[in-house]
Amino acid sequence: MENLLLSLLGTVYPANDMMAGMLVLYAEVFGLISFILFAIANILYVCIVIYSGGVKKRITAFPREQEMLLDVFFLIFPTLAILYILVPTLGFIFNSDFANIDTFVNVNVVGHQWYWTYEYYNNLSILPGFSNIYMEISLLQIDSFMDTDATINRLLEVTNRLVIPAGHFVGLHITATDVIHSFALPQLGVKVDAIPGRIAQATVFLPTSGVYRGQCSELCGAYHGFMPIVLEAIKLEYWYDWYCVNLGVTPAMLLLHDVNFSLCPASVTLEAK
């Protein structure tokens, strides 16, 4: 049923509450605007038929009082329609503000011409016992280029995915180094411009594991269409493994503080295929 509805609307399938909320809002607005559009189109069609010049010779203008009344109605009707849309919209806008939420892990997303770099902080609050330590050192740096050899998801496959744990809030700090890019994941309801000199924040929550794809959404030069974003949400325990393997340490080492942080940021960089 939901699939049918969504395919009628033509929208993407929502992956989390954020996007589902947007789609509900869209469906609400869509119902109203399609009603108005069909009403106007039908009234005009009826006018063409019954007031056709060949049929109807004498015009019937509205009397002055009716004209004034109708004018008032024409003012009030769009106002009410706008209010009908505006109230849930404002509720949604203020509710979707995740600025103060505690994130489980934070990722720096940096746009380049024409690839993305994901920098994982060593955000030790993810480990038990270290919840009040917050060291902003970029430990793991991943360059995510488009996979030009991909045949299945052409233009949507990357060399290295952005991997996040499912079921936890993930903070994305988004910026760019050269020109403006836009980090977009349609199914997650995320679209944030990556602006050089500014850091934008987005919070992502995915209830289940899965792979979600998006593309750069701000014109950024010749290869604008060729810097896709692939986000993979996996279970937390797998994510620990993935993180530690890519970092070149074992979870125990991380736990026992046995990693030389000063060496880490530049040393661990995944090479592009």
Partner: peptide
């Protein structure tokens, strides 16, 4: 959308009751 809506409704009301030549 309110003034724009007024304009559209007024155009429709102009056609309404007239003698329309297509």
């Amino acid at each position: 959308a309110i003034p724009t809506g007024i304009k559209v409704f007024n155009w429709v009301a102009t056609v309404w009751g007239g003698s329309v030549w297509l």
